[in-house]
Design a protein around this nucleic acid. Structure first.
Lengths: 216, 216
DNA sequence: GGCGCAAGGATTGTCAACAATTTCGTCCGC
DNA sequence: GCGGACGAAATTGTTGACAATCCTTGCGCC
């Protein structure tokens, strides 16, 4: 028999289950069910649900239990608007703080992005997109902004995911990504922030096209 | 004897105690002590601590308990930088969405601010400052940005508070506040965002002068 | 047939006791 | 006098049971 699992793992398990779609928005999360599913005590599950509610991933109502929170399209737009300004801040800081090594990494991602678009490899481009944003945040070295972005990304991971699959999306965002890299390499903070904001503004404009994740 | 207190109240009680300085940064928060102090069960306290850890107000270490989190000056600066861009977003949205009624409220606050500075009433000015920022956020009607700002404000409430007491601070920030109101009343989103950012940039510059709250 | 209503099941909230871990003081050997 | 091992106290983590609440189902009544 496996020993008792400490609560920290349960949070990760449930969070991953939500991310991977094992738990769909609106689905009830019943404490005893989760405790058997993840081999944890009910107290651990309970603590995990409180924590996930704080992250905005689940919704808890007094005496009625928890369910996976569904984010509406309107809310996804608001989330992306906040992301826009905060990632803009990160881009500006990155332009100020990047080492030569960092710039080389960014240029490498830019090159690979071009290649992925040429090859029509949507999946590779999507991964590079993730890496570019992650690298900018890492270079910016803003722990608070980073934490805020993590929280926000968790909430509309579903919307994000569907966006990358839109046909022709890559050819629109590629020049925006290249401009971000170029601005940072030029160490122009203002231009880097503007480029990042322009890119995410474009993402926001595209969001309604992908529709609400409910009607898949 | 008062009946058992539900956990929701404990969160508020502890949060308020931290805000009001009853619990100082670094202070250990022992579960049984809190449960007697707030007439709650240990489970409620425990749940409250998990929640507050999610809000970034307390720090919890495995098997070592919880303590009030101390935010360094560097972190306070980072928090304010994020606040700068997010409140900038709110100011821009407010400029787009404000009703005539909203504009009247803002102009009223501006008038009162001038009067408070003339009268040298620091406390009244501080309260008006709070009201101005709250009104802008309310008019912007951005629930996500609002939640982010609430979280951030909770973490450096101590730094904020000390700032208002700096002599001569009001005369510096008054024109900035007036410019924010003017820009919103002109329905100029770009100018409103720039004004809000300039104001908070000024706050950030001033932060080091107030020093770390530890050495009071 | 529709509607109020009570009983039952399902689920969450609370509590007290127990186990595990850390911390602190003490004592022994050097 | 000092460092390390031992042990007790303090504190957190976990468990199981019980109480409170909500939802469903079936019944009687209009």
């Amino acid at each position: 028999m496996s020993p008792a699992v400490e609560s920290g793992d349960v949070v990760d398990d449930v969070r991953r289950a939500i991310f991977e779609g094992d738990f769909v928005p609106g689905q009830r999360l019943i404490e005893v069910d989760l405790s058997t599913q993840f081999h944890a005590s009910r107290a651990s599950v309970r603590s995990a649900l409180v924590q996930l509610a704080g992250e905005g991933l689940v919704e808890r109502i007094q005496n009625r239990g928890a369910r996976v929170r569904a984010v509406s399209l309107d809310e996804a737009v608001e989330i992306s608007e906040v992301r826009m300004v905060v990632e803009g801040l990160c881009a500006a800081k990155a332009a100020q703080r990047a080492s030569e090594q960092d710039l080389a990494t960014l240029r490498g991602i830019a090159t690979d992005m071009r290649a992925a678009v040429d090859a029509g490899d949507v999946l590779a481009y999507s991964e590079l997109n993730r890496r570019l944003h992650a690298t900018v945040r890492s270079v910016a070295d803003q722990s608070v902004a980073d934490a805020v972005l993590d929280r926000l990304r968790g909430q509309n991971v579903r919307h994000q995911y569907r966006l990358a699959l839109l046909p022709g999306r890559a050819s629109v965002s590629l020049p925006q990504h290249l401009e971000i890299v170029e601005a940072i390499c030029a160490r122009d903070a203002g231009r880097a922030e503007a480029a990042m904001r322009a890119h995410l503004a474009s993402v926001i404009e595209t969001l309604p096209q992908v529709g609400s994740p409910a009607d898949a």
